[in-house]
């Protein structure tokens, strides 16, 4: 399987709002830590080594 780059999350506005809400009131360091935990949790859920490498490369490339 390769990384999905087209729209794949229904109700993404809901998720985006939830993401911001969960960061509310956190310090910068706490936000970084939360993001790190979230990435690790999602990586485990995705469970596909190739997909994760593609995602890492894409995130890097866009910057």
């Amino acid at each position: 399987m390769s990384l999905i780059k087209t729209d794949n999350l229904p109700e993404h506005d809901d998720f985006y709002a939830e993401l911001l809400a969960t960061h509310k009131g956190l310090s910068e360091a706490e936000s970084h830590a939360l993001n790190a935990r979230l990435i690790l949790i999602l990586a485990n859920h995705i469970g596909e080594r190739d997909v994760l490498s593609e995602a890492v490369a894409l995130a890097r490339e866009v910057d």
């Binding site: 999905i4 999350l9 506005d13 960061h23 866009v62």
Partner: peptide, 22 residues
């Protein structure tokens, strides 16, 4: 963090189709 997420959605949207809808 709110601005970071917003700016990175815009950045991704220039490259990756899924982010355009965001």
């Amino acid at each position: 963090i709110e601005r970071t997420f917003r700016d990175q959605v815009l950045k991704l949207a220039g490259k990756v189709p899924f982010a355009r809808g965001w």
